[in-house]
Simulated scan of single mutants.
Amino acid sequence: MQTAIELIGLPSDSNSSFERGAAMAPPLIRAALWSDRGNLACENGMEVGRDFELRDRGDLQLLEQPEDDGLIAAAVSDVVASGAVPLVLGGDHAMTHPVVRALHAVHGPLTILHVDAHPDLYADFESNPRSHASPFARIMEAGLARRLAQVGIRTMNAHCREQAARYGVEVLPMADFAASKVPVLEGPLYISIDLDGIDPGEAPGVSHPEPGGLTVREVLAVLRRQTARVIGADVVEYNPRFDSNERTAIVAAKLVRELAALIAQNSARG
């Protein structure tokens, strides 16, 4: 039986700081994913449509209000109830909290692999506890994850270091980074990729570019190490306002395809 993976677009950036624009991302990531400029082959040898299904639920109609968290959680729960695995297109990173909350209700405490330039552990960024700079504080304080490993971090201030210590977060900073240092995590595994974890030379279309980041190849090497069952994933924080020749949309689409292939591959392992 083929693994079914379902895309959900979450076109919201109401919890972004500094710049908005990530709400425009989901349709553009889809356009790059299905574009005839490439094909649907994945690096593990699988092909979309042949070895696994990649269905699309379209974009959720969000209100740009706190009620959106409930709408997001309900949509994810519906995907899981259908027997599929949710693969979410952001939008800003705030949406990871309600997605993880919905998955926790089914699977219990998760293990999370988080790729980002920023740890997103602020207790209350700019008086907004739902900020895109705070989702992992909300996740960890609620006990939704038993383990959180963060890769690509290069903006760790004192407050976030304190938060990481408080919640036992495993931070793998960019200084002296090697993919081989990233742990092979146990399941159930959730993977969250903020595109600003990648160096802006390869992914310029983000709101908070931070030099000295991961290459796409390094991100793929990190994913390739993971053997656990993946019960959900997201690709977030693409901001088309700052993209160049669709470069970041193409990167996002590549990551969506490879995440889907990883979900299918690891599901087949049992």
Rank of each mutant, 00 (worst) to 15 (best):
P173G: 11
R161Q: 14
G232H: 00
L223C: 07
V79A: 06
R37L: 15
N266L: 00
H97E: 12
H208C: 12
L40E: 12
R224Y: 11
G90I: 00
N44D: 14
L103M: 12
D69L: 12
G90C: 02
A228W: 01
R146Y: 04
L87H: 00
R257A: 10
A178V: 09
A74P: 11
S16M: 05
G108W: 05
R166S: 08
S131R: 05
D124Y: 10
N157M: 07
F52Y: 00
P209E: 04
A158M: 13
V99Q: 11
A261C: 01
V219M: 08
P26D: 02
K181N: 12
L10K: 07
P66Y: 12
M174Y: 09
L262C: 02
S192N: 01
V99Y: 05
I112V: 14
A145H: 01
P188A: 07
R55I: 11
A123I: 10
I263Y: 02
H118D: 02
P26L: 03
A25T: 01
L220R: 14
G58V: 07
N157R: 09
S12C: 14
Q65T: 14
G108M: 06
R217D: 15
A233K: 01
A233I: 00
G49C: 04
M156R: 13
I263C: 02
H159S: 12
A175N: 11
R154G: 08
F52M: 00
Q163I: 05
A32L: 06
V256E: 03
G143I: 00
I8D: 04
T215R: 11
T227P: 06
P129V: 11
A158R: 14
A228D: 03
F125W: 13
E202F: 15
V206F: 04
I153M: 07
A253Y: 06
N44K: 05
G212R: 10
L28F: 06
L259D: 00
L60N: 10
M1V: 12
P66M: 12
E218Y: 07
L7G: 05
A179R: 04
D234F: 02
V256Q: 02
A41Q: 13
S134E: 04
A75Y: 10
